[in-house]
């Protein structure tokens, strides 16, 4: 009885991403998306951020967050397309596009973080 369904694996990635996104995205988005642009808080200077982004731990955390969050999106969006738009027939295409985008995005994230 071999059950090599990938469903548990993608669900774990989805859940991990959901948790990471719930814990970390609100604060980062409020800071960099609203507080700094709107001047609620002074934006940190470049040298500080460069040092921060250059630190290996930051790189690792941000990579984990980006990759997991992208798989979270891929999984949820896949089911939203199935249910919300009744697109279950196009299942294979949706799976390839969603998880493919998440994989490509994770690779892109790794590249950006390594270069920064």
């Amino acid at each position: 009885m071999s059950r090599r369904s990938p469903e548990p694996l993608v669900w774990l990635l989805f859940s991990g991403g959901g948790m990471a996104a719930a814990l970390l995205v609100p604060v980062l988005l409020v800071l960099f998306g609203l507080a700094f642009p709107l001047g609620w808080l002074p934006a940190p200077d470049h040298a500080h951020l460069l040092a921060l982004v250059g630190h290996p731990i930051t790189k690792l955390v941000l990579f984990g967050l980006c990759a997991l969050a992208l798989f979270h999106w891929a999984h949820r969006f896949r089911y939203t397309l199935y249910d919300g738009l009744k697109l279950k027939q196009a299942s294979t295409l949706i799976i390839v596009v969603c998880y493919g985008a998440a994989l490509a995005g994770s690779a892109g994230a790794a590249a950006v973080l390594l270069m920064a």
Binding site: F32, L62, L65, W73, L113
Partner: peptide, 20 residues
């Protein structure tokens, strides 16, 4: 909401790239 989580990843990476 997952779509906006994905948007945040894009935004974050743009920021990191700019800082770099």
């Amino acid at each position: 909401s997952s779509v906006f989580v994905a948007w945040f990843v894009v935004y974050l990476l743009l920021l990191v790239a700019a800082v770099g």
